[in-house]
């Protein structure tokens, strides 16, 4: 019975840009937590991490399948269940914050998806893409049936209001890899722009636009 739980979880290999990244399950959970915080605090929708999500799901299902074989009331099993619940919470919160952004900015998100070059990675996972399209159709149908069809013919089209994420929002961040010469734009016309160095481990408050590329490379962590 205990064998079922003594599963160390073999290393997960992840093909990324042709090169193999080998991660331990613990590192995978770390990555999930980073992605969760970044997604929570960035004003725009970040790149999808469907591979990571799948790996986490795999770990969870695997562990849950093992737990099925254990009798009730086992101390170890209860600890495993608690861990599973914690990971599941982070995972759902991560996916939910993505969906919230999609619902808020769907015309913008779809536009970005259309204008993306063929080789570039998609911002949406296939499931999220389907959701976005359906959300758009449903919103249009709803507006039509509730209001538009009662309008005079020349007013029956509607241009979906294009809500865009405000990239000029301020964010809090912690630096993971030292960065030099980050340009800080002035707030007012009287001030001049200047550069700052971001030391490893230091924390900052600045505009998202300035450091957006560093979030996707993982050089800074939003907090």
């Amino acid at each position: 019975m205990l064998d079922a739980l003594s599963d160390d979880g073999s290393n997960i290999s992840e093909a990324d840009d042709g090169q193999e990244d080998v991660m331990t399950p613990a590192e995978l959970i770390g990555k999930l937590e980073e992605a969760w915080l970044n997604e929570k605090f960035s004003p725009e929708l970040l790149e999808n991490k469907s591979e990571m999500v799948e790996c986490v799901m795999e770990q969870l299902t695997h562990m849950e399948a093992n737990l099925q074989r254990v009798r009730k009331g086992d101390v170890k099993a209860s600890v495993h269940r608690m861990e599973i619940d914690r990971i599941r919470f982070v995972l759902s919160s991560y996916l939910r914050s993505r969906l919230q952004k999609i619902e808020k900015y769907f015309p913008h998100v779809l536009e970005k998806e259309k204008s993306r070059a063929d080789g570039d990675p998609s911002f949406l996972s296939p499931e999220e893409f389907a959701f976005t399209k359906e959300y758009l159709t449903n919103t249009e149908t709803y507006l039509k049936s509730v209001a538009l069809k009662h309008m005079p013919p020349n007013l029956q089209t509607v241009d979906m209001l294009k809500a865009e994420p405000c990239l000029d929002s301020f964010v809090f961040l912690r630096v993971r890899e030292r960065q030099e010469n980050i340009l800080v734009e002035p707030e007012t016309d009287e001030q001049r722009e200047y550069v700052v160095d971001l030391e490893e481990g230091s924390q900052h408050l600045m505009r998202y636009r300035t450091i957006a590329p560093l979030v996707s490379t993982g050089a800074v962590q939003l907090i």
């Binding site: 205990l2 739980l5 003594s6 599963d7 160390d8 979880g9 399950p25 613990a26 959970i29 770990q59 969870l60 562990m63 101390v75 170890k76 600890v79 495993h80 861990e83 599973i84 990971i87």
Partner: peptide
């Protein structure tokens, strides 16, 4: 105040 073998959690061993 109890004894138990190592637990192999997803996030590491205890």
């Amino acid at each position: 105040n109890f004894s138990l073998d190592k637990i192999y959690l997803i996030g590491g061993d205890l």
